[in-house]
Design a protein around this nucleic acid. Structure first.
Lengths: 126, 126, 126, 126
DNA sequence: GTGGTCTAGACCACG
DNA sequence: GTGGTCTAGACCACC
């Protein structure tokens, strides 16, 4: 499992870890039932505090993506993901698109980027 | 100018205000040279502290979207927006798309939502 | 007398006006006894509030650079300039030089800029 | 780390702190990777409010000089500093030199002061 | 009347 | 223990 942390990124580290793992799951690189690295190992690999990784795993469990068992490590859950409202799903998308518009990109360019990212996310799935 | 704050949203209030104003600018509802409401007025409208709004305006000024003059209010800037790297622009988009994928939406459904949001952002723009 | 205001400049307008007039005096383009434009005229030329220019003239008078008389306009003073401590004079210089160092300029490049600016200020003097 | 605040200085406190820290970085006394004092400690040392120092750190982070991590303190960044235009760099220098000229200093005296300050800034740098 | 700065103090998020 | 956010309220600087 390959995860990186960006020092320049303004988001907290644990959030970066969450997003990276989510992306891996979405891509299918982390499939149902697969085990994640132990908290201590991932923490030392990334050079961050142990609690930081633990917090990330905890949040992912809350969202229904992971199954964390005492002493048994964390595995990717196959169950239902926590439901999100339409608004909750659209808000970050709208923010991202707003950023692209304000950067001066044309409609066509934006669509190309979206298609590109979506391909990248989905082409290995299933 | 119509802005709302979502108590449930985990992002800080000033960040929500920033994003809402950015969207208004992207949509063209806030055009170049238009004045924003005074800090104190927007603060009281939203029921938050004046400093919270001031922080939002300051950040928008830093990004080059607003021109805030000391005793003369804030107006939408026509100048250049702070450059962002390709990565900085794509990261939030990837996050948003990941959320949609994990929610179980199919490729076509996701594209429909994206097109929908993009239309909404761009259809009032000259 | 040619003065410009920079909308992007973070400094308040009246401060920009003060600095521009000071530079004109330092260069000798505004010599002792010469009259400055009336407050109203300069204000309308620059498209700013009348009080803004009045505040600038007032400050310049406080520093001993101008002689403002009711109804008689403002003329460049020949008297002694308000004394400034060594620290007061060096502090802005140190700040400016710090900016150049942090921008990554080498010692030689910085000296070239200083000499350049100083030439520009002094070559018309006396 | 030694910082002082000048009550007489008309600049806001947080700006003074910013400039002092910038000078320390330029001098190399605060080298890449070194930790700054916690917000609360520096605030109490200087006898000012915690928010005032936080504002200074935030601005230094925006300029790319600091790397402030939420629960992990602030360290001097090794990354790229925010680019400034030639004009932005020269304007404060011109202001400072104008002040020296108006104080009645001769060309040679001014150059001596500049060389003196520049030496002081650079002699500890690698 | 506008925004800017600062304080005191509280509570939260992060590592 | 670290920084982040927010509030209430005061006073100042600017236009």
């Amino acid at each position: 499992m390959y995860i990186t942390i960006d020092e320049q990124d303004r988001r907290p580290i644990y959030q970066q870890v969450i997003d990276e793992i989510k992306t891996l799951i979405a891509k299918g690189e982390l499939g149902e039932g697969m085990a994640l690295p132990p908290v201590r190992q991932l923490a030392s690999d990334l050079g961050v505090n142990l609690n930081t990784i633990a917090a990330a795993y905890r949040e992912l469990q809350n969202e229904g993506l992971l199954n964390v068992k005492h002493g048994a490590g964390a595995v990717v859950s196959g169950g239902r993901v926590k439901e999100r409202s339409d608004t909750e799903l659209r808000k970050p998308l709208r923010s991202a698109l707003t950023g692209l518009v304000l950067a001066g990109l044309a409609h066509r360019e934006i669509m190309e980027i979206v298609v590109d990212e979506l391909q990248w996310l989905l082409n290995k799935r299933k």
